[in-house]
């Protein structure tokens, strides 16, 4: 595994998207800032895109959606140029922000608050189990016979 800071300090031609949580102060200080310093003097420094954001977690954690749009953008972007990547990412983010917010997570397992489909499946399972109760003595009698 390579030391990316040393590697990129020696020069680079690729395009870099660096996603860093602002809540992860260790990696902010020990990884991102040295990497930014390492690429800052190079002619291709504008090919390094730094995206920092805070997602509510203080520590080494980045939700999937924080980098998934960048991965999608890399796939659909017209080219690997920073401008095309930024345009692709912006259009993905705009589409996601326009979508309705997901339902809040169910924190408690209150059976009364169980999703209706789950309760319905549970009722069907109970009815099936009740039929097994009736069937079992008959089956046992057959086995005994």
């Amino acid at each position: 595994m390579a030391d990316c800071t040393a590697l990129y300090a020696a020069g680079f031609r690729s395009t870099v998207i660096y996603a860093q949580s602002m809540g992860d102060r260790h990696h902010w200080r020990a990884h991102m800032l040295p990497f930014a310093a390492a690429v800052s003097g190079h002619a291709n420094a504008d090919r390094a895109l730094f995206h920092t954001d805070f997602h509510g977690v203080h520590g080494h954690s980045l939700p999937r959606e924080a980098y998934a749009d960048w991965l999608r953008a890399a796939v659909i972007s017209a080219s690997a140029s920073p401008a095309d990547l930024l345009d692709a990412w912006h259009s993905l983010r705009h589409r996601r922000d326009a979508a309705p917010a997901p339902e809040p997570r169910q924190e408690r397992r209150d059976p009364a608050a169980m999703p209706a489909d789950l309760m319905a499946a549970s009722s069907r399972l109970e009815a099936w189990l009740a039929r097994q109760q009736i069937a079992t003595p008959v089956a046992q009698a057959k086995e005994a016979a």
Partner: peptide, 29 residues
């Protein structure tokens, strides 16, 4: 739990539990 009944040895397999303890025992059998 809250009026529903669960198999203590595999409580997660019935996410909504059962209506009574007998059904839990039958399912366990």
């Amino acid at each position: 739990r809250e009026g529903r009944f669960y198999d203590a040895l595999r409580p997660a397999v019935d996410p909504a539990g059962h209506a009574n303890a007998d059904t839990v025992l039958l399912a366990r059998r």
